[in-house]
């Protein structure tokens, strides 16, 4: 993986990336591996310039497309419309998780100048169906466990929430150090936070 990268990956980040890719392409909670692979294809098609969602993928394809290229443009009524047309909130949440983590994987790979990761053969094991029984819709458009904030927004589907944090920490900072303004590794915390805020600015994300 990343053998042709212009810039070599840090070993910890490479390990996290490998785990993320394995998890993304495996059967999920609500979605089969075939369905998750299609979400990945639809998100990548959006990034490659498709102006409209893949009609063959139905409402799930619409969700994947817009989360990939215009997440900041989503609104409560759009998600309600998805639901009215057959994409329930649990499946929508899984699609958000897939496209989001795929963004981490694909932007990192592209940033290092490596070839995009190719989808593996499909694993036909059924989805786990494992939801957090305490999850309900409270302060977001999707089920959450309590009144949730980052990085716990996917935790109604525990495997998705754990997978997000598993790549988030090695790529950003350990959660215990988020408030440490004096943190220094190869970058200072000020440089790290500048990169984070500039990226969010570019995506018009206020959270």
């Amino acid at each position: 993986m990343l053998v042709d990268a212009v810039l070599p990956p840090d070993p910890q980040r490479l390990a996290a990336l490998t785990r993320a890719w394995d998890q993304l392409t495996a059967p999920g909670v609500e979605l089969t591996a075939t369905e998750r692979h299609q979400v990945i294809k639809d998100a990548r098609a959006a990034w490659a310039g498709a102006s409209q969602p893949n009609p063959a993928s139905g409402v799930a394809g619409e969700a994947a497309h817009w989360v990939a290229i215009d997440a900041e443009g989503l609104r409560a009524e759009v998600v309600a419309d998805f639901e009215a047309r057959g994409l329930d909130r649990w499946r929508y949440l899984e699609i958000v998780g897939i496209v989001s983590r795929l963004a981490n994987v694909d932007f990192y790979v592209a940033g290092l100048g490596a070839t995009m990761l190719a989808l593996p053969a499909v694993d036909h094991t059924p989805p786990t169906g494992r939801r957090d029984p305490a999850a309900v819709i409270s302060n977001m458009w999707v089920p959450t466990v309590g009144r949730s904030f980052a990085p716990h927004v996917l935790d109604a589907l525990p495997a998705e929430g754990e997978a997000l944090r598993d790549i988030h920490e090695p790529m950003y900072v350990n959660f215990g150090s988020i408030g440490d303004g004096h943190l220094v590794d190869v970058l200072t915390k000020s440089q790290i936070e500048f990169l984070a805020s500039r990226s969010s600015y570019l995506n018009e994300c206020f959270y």
Binding site: L74, G97, V99, S100, V142, I167, M171, A196, S200, Y207
Partner: peptide, 15 residues
Amino acid sequence: ATFQMMNRALDGVGA
């Protein structure tokens, strides 16, 4: 890359 993820996750769920 990780903020490309977090921006989409947070905007996608209406956080």
